[in-house]
């Protein structure tokens, strides 16, 4: 195993850890907001680590840029949907609406 492979394996494992933690949080946390908090960590950091690992393995600028684009789009979708779900939850409870 080359150094590159070891590093990217470590990054993949770290990414999977964030996904696992986020999923456990989604299943176990008591309310919408803390669940969203757990989930977005998986989406943002987990996806970033996995993309970074695959960038190292891909060894081409094209692959790196595509993976960066995938991460940014995932980030955008996660941010907006998280915001919408949280807003909906607050409004349904009759609280302030953002």
């Amino acid at each position: 195993m080359s150094v590159l492979e070891i590093v990217s394996t470590g990054l993949l494992a770290a990414g999977c850890f964030f996904y696992l933690a986020g999923t456990i949080g989604l299943l176990r946390f008591p309310d919408v907001h803390s669940r969203l908090h757990a989930l977005t960590k998986a989406d943002n950091v987990g996806l970033f680590l996995v993309c970074l690992a695959l960038t190292l393995l891909g060894e081409s600028l094209r692959v790196a840029l595509l993976l960066l684009l995938i991460w940014l789009l995932g980030l955008l979708a996660a941010t907006v949907s998280c915001h919408l779900i949280a807003r909906h939850s607050i409004r349904r409870k009759g609280g302030r609406s953002g």
């Binding site: 789009l73 979708a77 907006v80 915001h83 919408l84 807003r87 409004r91 609406s97």
Partner: peptide, 18 residues
């Protein structure tokens, strides 16, 4: 009937052209 969240417009202006 409800006001639109600020992020929706930003999302659309990126995603729809995409």
């Amino acid at each position: 009937e409800v006001s639109e969240p600020a992020l929706v417009g930003a999302l659309l202006s990126l995603v729809v052209p995409l």
